[in-house]
Nucleic acid binder design. Structure first.
Lengths: 216, 216
DNA sequence: ACATTATTAGAGTGATTACTCTAAACTGTC
DNA sequence: GACAGTTTAGAGTAATCACTCTAATAATGT
C-alpha cells in the first residue's frame, strides 16, 4: 500500500479508537513507525487527513443511499439500507462522534458537510417516498419529512449515544448487540407508518434486532 | 455575587458561546478581569468547573421531569415538559454539544452522567406512561420504551444537529425558529401514538411549532 | 554511471494552555 | 492598629502538539 494510504488507514483506525482529539499527528506517525516529517510530506496538515477521510465516508454513504429507478422498493431493501448505513457509520465512527469540533473553524469541511447532510436528507426522503409508492408505508408528505429528519438524527447520534451513555470503561468496546439496537430504534421510528399489508412482515423483520432485555 | 458564582456564570456563558474546547481557564479569568491565580483559588481545575455546571444542569432537568402523583397528566403538561426541557437544553447547551470529550478520561463525570441518563429515561417513560393512563396516547410497553429512547436521542442531539448542519457561520446564532423546530420533531415522534380522542387537540398544539418552509 | 526527483528521518520550534507559586491586598476582630 | 485568615494578582512553568527544516537515502530516467 502507498504511504499516503497507509497514513489514512492508520489515522482512521486511531481516530475511531480514541477520538480525533486524542490522536496527534506524531501519534499517527509513530503508529506507522514513520517520522512526522514523512507524514507532513504527504499531507500538509492534520485537517487535510480528516478532510480526505470525510470524502471517503461521503462517497460511501452516497453510494449506499441510491434508490433504484427501474423497480419498486421492497421491504428487504429497507433492511439493506439500514445495515449498510450502520456499517459505514461504524467504520467511520469518529466522524459523527467528533463532528462538532472537527468543524470548528474549518469552513471548507463545514460547508461540505452541510451539503452532505442536505443530500442525505433528500436521499432518505426519496427512500421513504419509494417505500410509500410500494405501499409499504402510508404517510403524508409532511410527516415523511419529519420522519426523515428524525431518522438522520438518531442514525448519526447513535455511536455518540452509546459512547456517552452505555460504555463505562473507554476500553470497553461497542458490541454487536448495541449496533443491532440502533437498527431496532430506526425500525421503531418507521413502524407506526407501516401499511396493514406489510405490518406483519416488517415487524417480523424487526424481531431480529430486539436488543436483549438487559442491554441498556 | 460571590466570586465563585461569577466564575461559574462566566464559564457557562463562554462554553455555550464557543464550546468548552475553545475556552481556556485564562480566557474565563480574563473575561472577568481576574487573575488565573484567583480562578484556581476557587476551583482546583477546569474539570471542577465543568462538573459543577453539570450538577446544576442535572438538578434542573430532574426537577423538570417530575410526574404529578395526585392527578392525571393533561395535554398541556406534555407541552410544558417539552418547553422546559428545551429551555434547559438551551441554557446549558455546551453540555450535550461537547459531551463526548467532556467525558474523556473523566470517570467521575462519566459515571454520574450515565446515572443521569438512566434517571431521565425512567422519568421520560413515566411521563409517557402518564399520558397513556390519561388516554392521550395508546402504546404498548415495548413501543413506549423505544419511543422514550428516541426522544432522549433527538432532544439531546438537537443543538449539535443545528450547529453542525444548519449554521454556516459560527457567529450566526440559533434562532427561535430552530428551537421551535426541535419541539416539533418531538411532537412528531409521539404523534402516531395519539388516541383518537386527543389527536385533534394535540395536532392543533403542534401547529404552533411547524417551522417555516425554508427553515432548513 | 550520473543526474534528477521523490521520499524519508529526526531533531527542533513556537504557540498554546492548564496550572503553580509567591507576595500583596483586603477583611474582620479584639 | 495589630494580627489572622481570606482573597487576589500576575509572572512563570512544564507539558503538549501541530508543524518545519535540513540533510540523508531511495527511486527513476538517460
Amino acid at each position: 500500500m502507498k504511504t499516503r494510504d497507509r497514513i489514512l488507514a492508520a489515522a482512521l483506525e486511531l481516530f475511531n479508537q480514541q477520538g480525533e482529539r486524542k490522536v496527534t499527528t506524531n501519534h499517527i506517525a509513530a503508529h506507522l513507525e514513520m517520522s512526522p516529517g514523512n507524514l507532513y510530506y504527504h499531507f500538509k496538515n492534520k485537517q487535510e487527513i480528516i478532510f480526505e477521510l470525510f470524502l471517503s465516508y461521503e462517497e460511501r454513504v452516497d453510494a449506499n443511499l441510491q434508490v433504484p429507478t427501474d423497480r419498486l422498493l421492497t421491504i428487504e431493501d429497507k433492511l439493506n439500507y439500514l445495515q449498510k448505513v450502520f456499517q459505514g457509520l461504524w467504520e467511520f465512527r469518529f466522524i459523527h462522534r467528533d463532528m462538532e469540533h472537527l468543524l470548528l473553524g474549518e469552513e471548507r469541511l463545514h460547508s461540505r458537510y452541510r451539503e452532505f447532510f442536505r443530500r442525505c436528507q433528500k436521499n432518505t426522503e426519496a427512500i421513504y417516498f419509494g417505500l410509500r409508492e410500494a405501499n409499504i408505508i402510508e404517510i403524508s408528505d409532511r410527516d415523511l419529512e419529519g420522519l426523515a429528519l428524525n431518522t438522520w438524527i438518531v442514525v448519526t447520534s447513535w455511536f455518540s449515544f452509546l459512547q456517552c451513555n452505555l460504555l463505562s470503561d473507554p476500553e470497553e468496546s461497542i458490541t454487536l448487540e448495541m449496533l443491532k439496537a440502533g437498527i431496532y430504534q430506526i425500525f421503531q421510528l418507521e413502524r407506526p407508518y407501516l401499511s396493514d399489508e406489510y405490518r406483519a412482515s416488517a415487524n417480523a423483520m424487526q424481531q431480529a434486532f430486539i436488543p436483549k432485555p438487559d442491554w441498556l
